[in-house]
């Protein structure tokens, strides 16, 4: 225990409490729903124009894939975690939430072997969808700092 600060231990125990005494208020209200969008920029001060949704959902998912996902669903569960990070960023902004989102966008770009030589800067923003009356509105509620992708932010 000597290596772990007391504050960290107390904070972690505080995170454990809602598990031991849960509230179970699943879907009590349907809150504004976050989407993560990102853009790649040529320079740090370029004005972003082309925003892309991070991991848009597919048009359809066959039943066989739904059944497979009962056992193996890492990508979707990661997506749910990123939604939590987005909600946390709005409620209590922390570097942790921003870094988690950035790291996972970066990992995705690495995986896709995206050529980022000409656009080495990355920025993301949070767009929240909310219903007003009969219409669904989009609101940009958060924009990250611009990060140099090549130098890495992991």
């Amino acid at each position: 225990m000597g290596f772990i600060p007391v504050g960290t231990v107390l904070h972690t125990l505080k995170l454990l409490l809602p598990a031991l005494i849960p509230s179970w208020r699943f879907f009590d209200v349907i809150a504004p729903s976050p989407r993560i969008e990102y853009t790649l920029l040529g320079t740090a001060d370029e004005t972003p124009v082309n925003w892309q949704e991070f991991r848009p959902r597919p048009l359809t998912v066959p039943i066989s894939l739904m059944l497979k996902r009962m056992f193996w669903n890492p990508r979707w569960n990661e997506q749910l975690f990123l939604m939590s990070c987005a909600e946390r960023l709005m409620a209590h902004p922390t570097e942790h939430s921003e870094r988690e989102i950035l790291n996972r966008i970066g990992a995705e770009l690495d995986e896709a072997r995206r050529d980022v030589q000409s656009t080495p800067y990355l920025q993301f923003r949070l767009v929240f969808l909310v219903r007003q009356g009969e219409e669904i509105h989009k609101r940009v509620t958060y924009s990250s700092k611009v990060h140099h992708y090549i130098e890495g932010f992991k």
């Binding site: 048009l59 739904m66 969808l129 909310v130 669904i136």
Partner: peptide
Amino acid sequence: VFSFSAYPVSEA
């Protein structure tokens, strides 16, 4: 939930 939340696994 189905129209705009982040949960439905497909657009369909």
